[in-house]
Simulated assay, not measured.
Amino acid sequence: MNTGKTPNRSLLYVALLAATLMAPGPSYGVEPDEILEDPQLEERARLLSQDLRCLVCRNENIDESNAELARDLRILVRERLVAGDSNDAVIDFVVDRYGEYVLLKPTTTGANWLLWAAGPIMLLMSLLTAGVFLRGRKRASETPETELSEDEQKRLKEILDR
């Protein structure tokens, strides 16, 4: 027989709901003073910022990063958009200034094609090497063993008798 008090289930549900609501959500690095007044330009800036890498945080886009350089890049993107640049022109400007590493999704032009093709090329080379190796092993096991000649048998007997 349980003599202790049982907790009220509705109180537990309320506590769980409160804990869930107080849990931290995703935080963005965009500060209120950076946000543009024109909602269309701000939306374009956010889309562009998601494709640009924070050079301090490495694998984080500048929209989520709190680094100073990411803030500078966000402001630069917004300045270029206010100046009337297209999305491609803004990306080209940032890439010209900071290099192609700033793109989270690098292009497949220039020397980057080798990086994109390296994985499949290495896979094909390893499959080819494995095929040649297995074919060679199969041929080696198919060759019949030859008996020793009489001279070889005499020489072997002399060596073993010593």
Rank of each mutant, 00 (worst) to 15 (best):
L48M: 13
G25C: 05
D63H: 10
E34K: 01
I75Y: 05
I35R: 10
G29Y: 04
A19K: 03
L52A: 13
R44L: 08
G29S: 03
P24E: 01
G29Q: 02
E37S: 12
A19H: 00
L55N: 11
G29D: 03
E34Q: 10
A23K: 01
V56S: 02
Q50L: 12
I35L: 11
P39H: 11
Y28R: 02
L73S: 12
S49A: 14
L73R: 10
R53G: 07
P32E: 09
R46G: 10
R71Y: 09
E31R: 03
R58I: 09
Q40H: 05
L55F: 10
A19F: 04
V30R: 06
Q40G: 06
V56F: 00
E42L: 13
Q40C: 00
I62Y: 09
C54W: 07
A45Q: 12
S65Q: 10
L73A: 12
D38R: 05
N66T: 14
N61M: 08
R74T: 13
D51V: 13
C57V: 03
P26G: 02
D38P: 05
G29K: 01
R46T: 10
A70C: 08
R58H: 04
L36G: 03
M22H: 01
Q40T: 09
L52E: 15
S27P: 00
L36K: 03
R74K: 12
D51K: 15
E37R: 12
S49M: 14
E60V: 14
N61I: 14
N66F: 13
P24H: 00
Y28M: 05
M22W: 01
Q40F: 06
R74D: 14
L47V: 04
E37Y: 12
L52H: 12
R44I: 03
R71G: 13
G29V: 04
D38F: 08
L47S: 05
E64R: 06
R44N: 07
L41Y: 02
I35V: 15
A23V: 01
E68G: 02
R44S: 08
C54A: 11
P32T: 07
M22E: 02
